[in-house]
């Protein structure tokens, strides 16, 4: 599994020029690449574009390949690209365990096997026995860990992280960075992280700063 970006250009609705210079990047399995840049440069929109969920009006040109397969022509659910959003976005009406069960890939078959996979994921997240809990009772850091496990249980071919630590307490960020790095290495998939915080680049093998194109940015 390798994620390749070729000459990616993002244009905002109604704008004539792209937001940043064409972007090319190759991310190997188990590797994290970090894109840093000021807010408003289009980092979140870039993630949304790779995931196939750009708001109407944005134009993404260039190529995105996952293991050689061109992604941009596919609907979001068939790209095999997991996304970690700024907010954990756990389903508030489902228990923590059911949030994970919803994420768990259908390749796990049978009730017992699926249940075992969910409780194992909870253990790896450091939340053993939290399956029946209401997500609202979790701390911000716990919610972020559940969101990461939910995305990984779907067995994506790549993972995109959109400022995953921004909503966390500064004291929790370092721990969460290590947690993410460790699990992404274990999953052996390429990951692309965008952040406005230069410290986040520390977890990444390669990091790239993107700057706005032109004076108007």
């Amino acid at each position: 599994m390798t994620l390749e970006l070729h000459d990616l250009c993002l244009t905002a609705p109604g704008a004539a020029a792209p937001l940043f210079a064409p972007l090319s990047l190759r991310i190997a399995p188990g590797e994290i690449a970090c894109l840093t840049g000021p807010s408003g440069v289009g980092k979140s929109s870039l993630i949304a574009g790779i995931a196939g969920q750009l708001p109407r009006g944005f134009v993404l040109s260039g190529q995105v390949r996952l293991n050689g397969r061109d992604l941009l022509a596919l609907p979001p659910e068939r790209r095999g690209v997991g996304v970690i959003f700024q907010q954990a976005l756990l389903f508030p009406h489902l228990s923590v365990g059911d949030n994970l069960a919803f994420g768990l890939s259908p390749e796990f078959r049978g009730r017992t096997a699926r249940r075992a996979a969910v409780s194992e994921a909870l253990e790896r997240a450091g939340l053993p026995g939290y399956g029946a809990r209401d997500p609202a009772t979790l701390s911000g850091g716990q919610r972020a860990r559940v969101a990461l496990m939910r995305a990984l249980l779907a067995q994506p071919g790549a993972l995109l992280l959109d400022e995953p630590f921004a909503a966390l307490d500064p004291a929790l960020r370092a721990g969460m960075r290590d947690f993410v790095a460790e699990h992404l290495r274990a999953a052996a998939i390429p990951a692309l992280l965008v952040s406005h915080d230069a410290q986040d680049a520390a977890v990444a093998r390669q990091s790239l700063a993107i700057a706005p194109l032109g004076a108007g940015g």
């Binding site: 949304a48 995931a51 196939g52 969920q53 609907p75 979001p76 659910e77 068939r78 095999g80 690209v81 997991g82 996304v83 959003f85 907010q87 976005l89 389903f91 508030p92 009406h93 489902l94 919803f102 994420g103 890939s105 939910r150 995305a151 779907a154 994506p156």
Partner: peptide, 28 residues
Amino acid sequence: VDVTGQMAVGRSLGYAPGRVWARVIWPQ
């Protein structure tokens, strides 16, 4: 309900839009 956000999460987990709607959003 944050329909847009939940739909994005559901689709990034590999669910067809109708499935996300019927399984997790509509019940809310």
